[in-house]
Simulated assay, not measured.
Amino acid sequence: MKKRRLGNTGLQVSKLCFGSLTMGPLQANLTPDEGGKLLRHSFEKGINFIDTAELYETYPHILKALNGYKRDEIIIASKSYAYSKATAEASLKKALKEMKIDYIDIFLLHEQENENTIRGHNEALEYFVKMKEKGYIRAFGISTHHIAAVKASGSINEIEVIHPIVNMSGLGIQDGNIEDMLLAIDKAHKAGKGIYGMKPLGGGNLLRSFKECFDFVLNISSLDSIAIGMQTIEEININISIANDGTCSEALKNVKLDNKKLSISEWCEKCGKCVHACSHNALKIKHDKLLIDHDKCVLCGYCSKYCPQFCIKVV
């Protein structure tokens, strides 16, 4: 698989990035051994870039996958909601310890909204920049569902990498449409920022049009890489085939095309914790029922992390 330079970071990344969210406890709940095998298969096929986060709880899966590989062969990006020096230090130490690595290639502030939220995390930002100077981080950046955060990042020198939502329908973008997002990431990319997109299939909502979705993101010159979740060897092979030469192999005919949905179990106590956690405003409680707005839901599964009764799943 072809590699591209990730902005001005000096990092060379594969066009596809393995998004590890879907293999972890928030979704498929694969064991570290199972997840490690998937990652190693993707490495053998040419993927050298992994996206994870403290929230995903997939550090053990990545640890299994790294065994036998030289550290500089695999690019790892992680994220956290750190807002202070103490929380940033804890997040970085956790990542390094649980993956048993001496440095992490990219560390991102998770789900930033605009210049104000970025500045509100300034203490964490300053800590991560200092850790970059000491060699524990190679590049720093943000992940976001907001165009405003992409625009703000262009004028913040410390931010070198941006990880925004990009898909042909603009699903998950919180403050505009896909046309506006493309203009923002193009400007940021021209300013030297590394850009790798997320949710090219809209969290699974666009699965029935996934060839068109791939064609769309692969033809965006300002995207250095695209992170996509993969749960089977078959998915990995098909995605790599499309990314490499634009073709769908015969295996495509056997892919399950049922749309995924967020599911709430009947024992839900309507405590509301998931509602407050959902940044997409896709959940609400009405008439003692927890309701899902499937048009807004991007199937990230983040809300399930906050459910004390384990009622929420992506199925």
Rank of each mutant, 00 (worst) to 15 (best):
K305P: 00
G272A: 12
G192K: 07
Q27F: 10
D215L: 05
H276S: 07
E123R: 06
H110K: 07
L92T: 02
R4H: 14
L257Q: 09
D288Q: 14
L38H: 05
K3H: 03
I142A: 11
H121G: 08
N219L: 07
L262Y: 05
I159V: 15
D72S: 14
E158H: 07
S169F: 11
C213Y: 03
A191H: 02
C278W: 01
K37N: 14
Y306R: 05
E212M: 12
I106G: 07
E57C: 14
L252W: 01
G170V: 07
C297A: 05
L26W: 01
V150W: 13
C268R: 06
D258A: 12
I238C: 08
Y83V: 14
E160V: 00
H41G: 06
I137Q: 09
F310R: 14
G176W: 13
V314K: 08
T232H: 09
E44P: 08
L291T: 04
S78M: 10
C300A: 11
N116T: 05
D224Y: 11
N67T: 11
I195K: 00
S42K: 03
H163W: 01
K211P: 03
G120K: 09
I178K: 05
S14L: 07
K3R: 08
N114T: 10
F107M: 14
D175R: 00
A149P: 14
D288R: 10
C311N: 09
R4K: 09
E115F: 13
S279F: 13
A65H: 13
R71N: 02
M181E: 06
K79H: 15
K256M: 10
L38R: 08
S169H: 09
K273G: 06
N205F: 05
K79C: 15
V13L: 00
K151Q: 15
C268S: 10
R4C: 03
Y196A: 03
I50Y: 06
I240E: 04
S153M: 10
L218H: 01
A227Y: 09
F140H: 10
D33V: 14
C297N: 02
L38I: 08
S153V: 06
F210Q: 04
S84Y: 13
A86T: 10
L262M: 15
L291M: 08
I264D: 03
T31G: 12
D288K: 11
D51E: 15
I220F: 03
M168I: 09
H163Y: 09
G272V: 01
S80M: 14
D288W: 06
S169P: 02
S263D: 03
A148F: 06
L108T: 02
I292H: 02
D258I: 03
K253D: 15
G135A: 12
F49V: 00
A90P: 05
F140A: 09
F214M: 15
H280S: 02
N281I: 00
G229R: 07
Q27C: 12
A77F: 00
K305L: 07
E123C: 13
N67C: 05
A251M: 14
I76L: 15
D186V: 04
S221W: 00
N157I: 14
C303H: 00
T232C: 06
V129T: 03
H287P: 03
S263M: 06
K211C: 04
T58G: 13
F107W: 12
D180L: 12
K273C: 00
L11Q: 00
K79G: 15
L252M: 06
R4V: 03
H276V: 03
G203S: 11
S241T: 12
A82K: 05
